[in-house]
Design a protein around this nucleic acid. Structure first.
Lengths: 331, 331
DNA sequence: CTGAAAGCGCTTACAG
DNA sequence: CTGAAAGCGCTTACAG
């Protein structure tokens, strides 16, 4: 069953059938209905490949993230897919991994697929690879609109949607200092754009409050509860507050604090990042900074749709994080 | 730059170019190389839409799950995408939601896209919708191979890959009874295929050990840590062991047990399901049943590839779960 | 091993 | 508002 069959059955030309498929305004309501009825009766669906050939698009966007099994990315991907579908776009998913070759390959596959646009989730795409190479991003942006979620690069054609991680950490560290904390540890697991911003927020807050930035208080580690706990145990660091670039490390720290029989929040304050389900599993429940995936996803998709419609859109859209208070902090 | 350009530049016909693109054996090595060189030099990539039109496939599979932000599904999707890519298949992701209309729509969109095959993640597709309707699945299976991950339906063309949830729960409950537990609660959040099997395992183990199945010990609740905890608190159920169909509920139960000042595992045993990161966040760390997403994903993809190659494959492939012992059980 | 030609099923500028 | 026709860029059966 193809467009010729439908044309014949409804007594019009294929051009007319095509027009009603595409809801062209220049078809009379009467023949529109006639053709629709036939299409419905025979359960006709236009062949995507042929449409693609003619239109040079099948309304798909490429969604790329290092790893969907990461809680933050999964949540972002879920929202993105949902929002895109509202506009009739389907999503091709690519888990690129964290290293350069994987990213380049994922982007290439998508481009070869003639996607209409691309959304990259996670600031790892903003250049964290030593060589700091984002050439593949620049090239991609020449071909299709690219939106970067949770990262920022100043490249024409890439639209960046992110939360203000710098400020979130800065404010939190100021609050920690205000309630009397002086030995504040920062836990992080990457050198991505967003993590770097968090680190800067941490350092600046210390400095602005007259505290010294101590190298041993900046602890690089895997984002894993048990490994974080054990690494801290091994280091025997003395601290009275912890802020982490992701929840798992913070929970690990919380567990370490328990091990050494200190109380939370009396002796030590703990703050996580991303406000995941992990926060309510531990005891006490953990304060965390919410990075607003839902809002970001919505902005990402809305902006993309605008760009695809030829409208202009700002290249950097930043919204604040939200501090979620639970029981590991007094503020 | 299209196939005509490449043909002209390499001094052959488009038929030959097409053959080298498709790595046809009936092209001499010499002209193959000649054409390859030209394609590489001009960075030529065949147009997918045109290929799709000709071949009636662009090597994509539809991945559908109720919600990728669920930990279990995200993990499955991640493995699936990775494994599919190895075979040159791209993945279109659809989060269908949990209700019937959403599922039907997701499947329809994919079919209209002319995907080569479909993988459904989660036993919610095995008919949990009151009306128990899996007609859309049967229809889909007429058109493309369908694999169902973590569920079972006896329908031609759908291949089911799952873990033996019945046995996992049965054995665990037997173990609980063996260490002296008598008031064992079962927490669940759905009526999907897999949850039903877990429930059956629970009941049969009780019966086989001479215990009565008490209706109030089967607690239906949302799969959410805090809600589970609070619901149990409200019910004031008296129990000495808990097994849940997913980790979050089990963690909720663990927190409730703490609230009422009982000890784990001395007074109460707790066992979760899916062995997620939540298990190591709580205190003590929680025993859980691992549902082997990685292995399942691999089997799912391998089977699919076989089916697509015209080979025959069993319709039901079941592997055992794995019990992960931590500190909330004595066995 | 290679090529000329038909075919895949649409879209759309052009003419009416 | 509608249709005839060209075009999109491939694949492949057929002939040589």
């Amino acid at each position: 069953m193809n467009i010729y069959d439908i044309a014949k059955l409804s007594g019009v030309s294929i051009a007319t059938v095509s027009r009603v498929i595409n809801n062209s305004p220049k078809v009379s309501e009467k023949t529109k209905k006639k053709v629709w009825d036939v299409m419905n009766e025979y359960d006709y669906t236009p062949n995507v490949f042929a449409r693609g050939l003619g239109l040079n698009s099948v309304k798909t966007v490429g969604l790329v993230c290092p790893d969907v099994s990461d809680r933050y990315m999964a949540s972002a991907i879920a929202y993105l897919e949902k929002n895109l579908r509202k506009y009739g776009y389907d999503s091709i998913l690519m888990c690129s991994g964290f290293d350069y070759e994987g990213k380049v390959e994922a982007v290439k596959i998508l481009l070869d697929r003639r996607i209409d646009a691309m959304i990259l989730v996670g600031s790892h795409y903003a250049g964290d690879c030593g060589q700091n190479d984002i050439q593949y991003l620049k090239d991609a942006a020449q071909k299709v609109p690219v939106v970067l979620m949770n990262g920022y690069v100043r490249v024409p054609g890439v639209y960046c949607v992110l939360t203000d991680n710098y400020k979130a950490v800065y404010d939190t560290v100021c609050n920690l200092i205000e309630v009397g904390r002086k030995k504040i540890v920062f836990l992080y697991d990457a050198n991505s754009y967003s993590t770097t911003k968090k680190l800067e927020g941490y350092q600046d807050a210390l400095i602005d409050n007259g505290l010294k930035v101590q190298e041993e208080y900046k602890v690089f580690m895997p984002n894993n509860v048990l490994k974080a706990r054990d690494l801290l145990a091994k280091k025997r660091l003395d601290f009275d507050a912890v802020i982490a670039s992701d929840d798992a490390m913070a929970v690990g720290a919380l567990k370490y604090v328990h091990q050494i029989n200190k109380s939370i929040p009396e002796d030590v304050n703990v703050v996580g990042f991303n406000n995941s389900e992990l926060c309510v599993c531990c005891n006490p429940e953990m304060s965390s900074i919410d990075s607003q995936e839902e809002e970001l996803s919505e902005i990402a998709v809305d902006s993309l749709i605008k760009v695809l419609a030829g409208k202009s859109v700002r290249q950097k859209m930043e919204i604040p994080c939200k501090f979620i208070k639970r029981n590991t902090t007094q503020f």
